[in-house]
């Protein structure tokens, strides 16, 4: 299943209990503390379910996970 901006923001908003619908796509999520470690782990579990592909350990870095834009790009690269 493709990960869209809407589904990603809905997931992150639910997990962080904050309305992230207006967040800019390039805004830092993890580095800024908007998303904590627990939610980040939930996100990785969720991405694996959505894309049907296992995340490579080497891919777990800020380049792939620190903004909506980067997460969407990474998810698109992993989608089967």
């Amino acid at each position: 299943m493709a990960v869209t901006r809407e589904t990603l923001l809905a997931f992150l908003s639910k997990k962080t209990r904050a309305d992230l619908s207006k967040i800019e796509d390039g805004a830092e999520l993890f580095s800024s503390g908007v998303v904590d470690s627990f939610v980040m782990v939930d996100l990785m579990m969720w991405l694996e379910k959505q894309t049907g592909a296992r995340l490579n350990p080497a891919d777990v870095n800020l380049d792939n996970f620190d903004s909506v834009q980067r997460i969407l790009a990474y998810a698109a690269s992993r989608a089967r």
Partner: peptide
């Protein structure tokens, strides 16, 4: 299996934080 995977992600995340 999911619990093990969650644990692995926790470790990877810790590594990511240390690298940062």
């Amino acid at each position: 299996d999911a619990a093990r995977r969650r644990y692995e992600f926790g470790l990877l995340l810790n590594r990511m934080k240390n690298e940062d």
